[in-house]
Design a binder for these strands. Structure first.
Length: 906
RNA sequence: GGACGCUUAGCUCAGUUGGUUGAGAGCGUCGCCCUUACAAGGCGAAGGUCGUAGGUUCGACUCCUACAGCGUCCACCA
């Protein structure tokens, strides 16, 4: 043979193979997608990871999924485009850099805004975006030429454009918002920067006199010092004790102000007295109640949490705890402090300085959500966008119907600065540039102009991601109009369910609102940002806890890849990831993937060895039907049925089913049965021509199986695909055509025939196992066939029996005679005898048969009972009843034969 | 407290519009094997009253109700 002898190592070692092929793919531009009108596009935009983040198991899952989808579609003939990128992550990034500064003994204020931002950019250049780089190790086929960052100039332009448009349309407004305020640092901090700890405190019951009545309203509070900001007392509308008080007025003690008694569902009748003081300026819940009832907001503290001019003079200037003491003392004197209870409450503290957080009102910018939410809800309810799994629709709907306005301003420096400009007289407007602002405000170039100090919430840039990656709104100027038209909308979004509101919902809103400006249509199908949303599983540890950096319970993904190989890690996580269920993950599970890779590797070695020794026929392809025997027909049937299952499961995103189907086919059908069966032909005395056809077909099926598996395990499939047959220079399996299933190859008759042969082999093996007969010892098999079956129909499989069950001689008997001292079995009504002179232990065989008789007798009994039930025979469908009748017959016959053989043993 | 999800072999999970006593796999366990692709392997075996209690049905792992345990998200309690 002219073919070179290829020797593969006995054990697959992924490291070098993976490095080699990734470089091969990337250097040849195989990941790059371009506009191609002859092909359908298939697009995914990556959920941009934080530039401060490091790769964790969630990313491994998420990106293995995306890569599998992208590679699959690419091989199915789509122009598959996976756009990578990173998120600037305002708070997280600013914190990282501030921490670094702290080591130098500096704060950001020492540097000033511009210098500080420069520092962040430097940091980003040096350390940022590690995750995106690590994705290469995993084998991700991202179109790196299209990589974007949410603070890129073009994406910042998109942010500005959207802000200005929404401002002009009245969808963005300035208002008061209650934030977590640190009175020491004088800054607002986000919810997840607040550390909550349980603390022993007191619950104070205070009487508020009711105007024009001798009654008092007793409220319970943990924070009496905020009472100066009280604007109402609330009760539950269905609380019968207080019906008569709703609408009355109470006098706020100490401040001596009249405030109303209102009714709100929020109030818990069982807590305290069932009456709550409402302080919108100093409690988040009260803030929302205040919004609902249009109550005023009375701020009683300054930025350091000292009492301000809105409290009576004696308290002014006191800090909140002094004010609490003072107020309690005064209430006590006036007899208004009814009682004090011990109470444990959850106190929020600043993550930096541990100061107790003060809920505090401040000026913030908001997006009006109602007008955006309605169309975004509709496209999910009417199926324009599909969620997988669909139960998230309900969660989405609930949130969208109760949506609150979105506070988009952040008191940070790192981020998109709010494009609002103020004139000296306080008038303001939103604009894309200072010039535009001056024009809008009617100012001269020399007039002073001040830009808002705050930056935008990070999500305000990521919600535009599906189209801002194509440089909207400057796509035309930058030559990206065709890309935007071709690759938008994207097809599949793969993301974690935690960010369904932060990100998924808002992208839908942004798409429906802004895409019409480039799709030039109102058709929601064209404007939505994606068609399908795949919500990933949560990866948990052995104790069921979510894997996270802070718990330290997550294996280091790069270590896993180094130890098991990227293919193994990918396969394992996808094998473990049922759609919508959590994954219990442990490092050792990667043995599933590693062992599977090794199995495939060795199947490849076997084929190469035979190709080199025997050669292969010219005729190739997974539809080749030359010199077929049972094993061939069967593996073709199994292959096409597997390919069909893969297609179906891919369509419904059941990726774990895809992996399972491929695993079972390759390992059990192809390796365990098919390869073992063709050995009997390859090493038998058939003509060389036939042997070569067998080799060709074995390679055909393997080649096609590698292609089916490639989206899951890209590296090893490429390595073997390149080895098993000569390829064009620069060719790659990732651009090869996916194997297409042909249902005409799927034949039940062949599978049934195969099942019979397998059952015979398995029965002989079981006998060998039970009798502890060494695998190297050959045995004889005698069969007694039922009337309908010719001995030739068995004899033609002699080769299989020899190789797979170590049967030396196969013979047949008729009539009443039966071999003495033989182990027996009944397969589909046919009797097997394995004479074991000297080897057989009669007692073992008796026990074995007895067990089998019991089992079959049990089955028979239940079938009999079922058929004896007239209700069943009457009401059950005909085919079900027919099936039971067939069972009755087989079980009866089998039982008779087993019993006769049992009797013959004694 | 509200919404949702899960509960099948020792462990991790499959189980496709209800057909049962013909409930599968991997790991682990036990037995026999270094058989010329693979010991990261091959062959065989043991192991399950499908969370509990009811209900619907000729028939329930599969549908309904309640309960228990676990988990997620939301609201988190003045």
């Amino acid at each position: 043979m002219a073919e070179p002898q290829v020797t593969l190592a006995k054990v697959y070692s992924p490291q070098e193979v993976e490095r080699k092929w990734y470089q091969y793919w990337e250097s040849r531009g195989l990941f790059h997608a371009r506009v191609d009108p002859t092909k359908k596009p298939y697009t995914i935009v990556i959920p941009p990871p934080n530039i401060t983040g490091v790769l964790h198991m969630g990313h491994i899952l998420n990106n293995s999924l995306q890569d599998a989808f992208i590679r699959y579609k690419r091989m199915k003939g789509y122009e598959a485009c996976w756009i990578p990128g990173t998120d600037h992550a305002g708070i997280a990034t600013q914190n990282v850099v501030e921490k670094a500064l702290m080591k130098e003994g500096k704060t950001r204020h020492d540097l000033g805004r511009d210098k500080f931002i420069e520092r962040v950019w430097e940091w980003k250049k040096q350390y940022g975006g590690v995750i995106i780089k690590q994705l290469r190790t995993l084998g991700c086929s991202c179109d790196w030429e299209r990589e974007r960052f949410t603070m890129d100039e073009s994406l910042s332009n998109a942010v500005k454009e959207v802000f200005v448009r929404m401002f002009d349309d009245g969808l963005i407004y300035r208002g008061k918002y209650i934030v977590n305020w640190c009175p020491k640092d004088h800054t607002a901090i986000s919810d997840d920067e607040v550390n909550y700890t349980l603390q022993e405190g007191k619950l104070y019951y205070i009487a508020y006199p009711i105007a024009g009545s001798s009654e008092v309203a007793v409220v319970a509070t943990t924070r009496p010092e905020t009472m100066f900001g009280d604007v109402a007392v609330a009760v539950n509308p269905s609380d019968e004790r207080y019906q008569h008080l709703i609408g009355k007025t109470v006098t706020l003690p100490l401040a001596m102000k009249p405030i109303p008694i209102i009714a709100d569902e929020y109030v818990d009748q069982a807590f305290g007295t069932g009456m709550v003081k409402i302080t919108p300026a100093h409690d988040p819940n009260d803030f929302w109640i205040g919004q609902r009832h249009n109550l005023p907001q009375v701020n009683v503290m300054d930025v350091s949490a000292r009492m301000n001019e809105n409290v009576p003079p004696p308290y002014q200037g006191l800090d909140r705890y002094e004010a609490r003491k003072g107020a309690l003392a005064d209430l006590e004197t006036q007899g208004l402090l009814v009682k004090v209870e011990d109470h444990t409450n959850n106190i929020g503290r600043c993550y930096r300085c541990d100061t107790v957080i003060e809920p505090y009102l401040s000026d913030q910018w908001f997006v009006r959500m109602k007008p955006l939410a309605e169309p975004a809800l509709n496209v999910v309810l009417d199926g324009t966008i599909t969620f997988y799994p669909d139960r998230w629709v309900k969660v989405y709907e609930h949130w969208m119907r109760n949506v609150r306005d979105w506070c988009i301003s952040r008191q940070l420096w790192w981020g998109h600065r709010i494009p609002v400009y103020y004139a000296a007289d306080g008038r303001f407007t939103a604009a894309r540039s200072e010039d535009e602002a001056r024009t809008k405000l009617g100012l001269q170039p020399s007039d002073p102009l001040r830009q808002d100090e705050d930056v935008l919430d990070t999500w305000f840039s990521s919600w535009l991601w599906p189209f801002s990656v194509h440089d909207w709104p400057q796509h035309e100027k930058l030559g990206k109009a065709a890309d935007l038209a071709y690759f938008y909308p994207t097809d599949t979004l793969v993301t974690a369910p935690e960010i369904i509101f932060f990100w998924v919902a808002r992208m839908i809103m942004a798409g429906l609102r802004f895409a019409p400006s480039f799709t030039h249509t109102d058709d929601p199908h064209k404007n939505i940002p994606f068609r399908d949303v795949y919500f990933t599983s949560i990866v948990r540890d052995a104790r069921g806890r979510k894997m996270s950096k802070s718990l330290g319970n997550s294996p280091e993904p790069l270590d896993l890849i180094a130890e098991y190989g990227a293919d193994a890690v990918r396969f394992t996580i996808l094998y473990l990831a049922p759609l919508g269920q959590d994954i219990i993950y442990a490092k050792e599970k990667n043995e599933i993937g590693r062992n599977f890779a090794n199995k495939i590797w060795n199947a490849g070695r076997f084929l190469l060895m035979n190709r080199d020794q025997i050669g292969e026929a010219e005729k190739r392809g997974e539809f080749n039907t030359d010199h077929l025997d049972l094993a061939d027909r069967w593996i073709l049937s199994r292959f096409h049925s597997t390919a069909l299952d893969v297609d179906r499961a891919m369509q419904t995103y059941e990726i774990n089913k895809v992996t399972k189907v491929l695993y079972d086919f390759i390992w059990h059908d192809y390796c365990d049965w098919y390869v073992e069966m063709i050995k009997s032909r390859l090493y038998g005395d058939e003509p060389l021509e036939v042997k070569r056809a067998v080799v060709a077909r074995a390679l055909d099926i393997f080649d096609a199986s590698l292609r089916l598996l490639h989206p899951i395990m890209p590296f090893i499939t490429e390595e073997l695909w390149q080895h098993i047959r000569p390829r064009q220079p620069g060719a790659s399996i990732m651009r090869a055509e996916m194997a297409e299933p042909d249902p005409s190859f799927i034949t039940k008759q062949v599978e049934d025939e195969m099942t019979f042969v397998q059952n015979v082999i398995e029965s002989v093996r079981t006998i060998r196992g039970e009798m502890s007969i060494s695998p190297s010892k050959e045995i004889s098999l005698i069969m007694k066939l039922s009337d309908g079956r010719e001995s030739e129909s068995i004899r033609k499989y002699n080769g299989y029996l020899q190789r797979l069950a170590k049967v030396r001689s196969l013979s047949f008997i008729t009539g009443q005679s039966r071999p003495k001292r033989a182990a027996t079995a009944v397969v589909q009504g046919e009797e097997l005898f394995v004479p074991l002179e000297g080897l057989i232990d009669i007692e073992v065989e008796k026990a074995r048969l007895h067990k089998e008789i019991d089992r079959v007798a049990g089955l028979l009994k239940s079938v009999q009972a079922k058929l004896a039930n007239p209700q069943f025979v009457d009401k059950a469908p005909k085919d079900v009843v027919e099936k039971e009748r067939e069972k009755l017959q087989t079980f009866t016959q089998t039982l008779e034969k087993l019993q006769r053989n049992y009797a013959a043993l004694a």
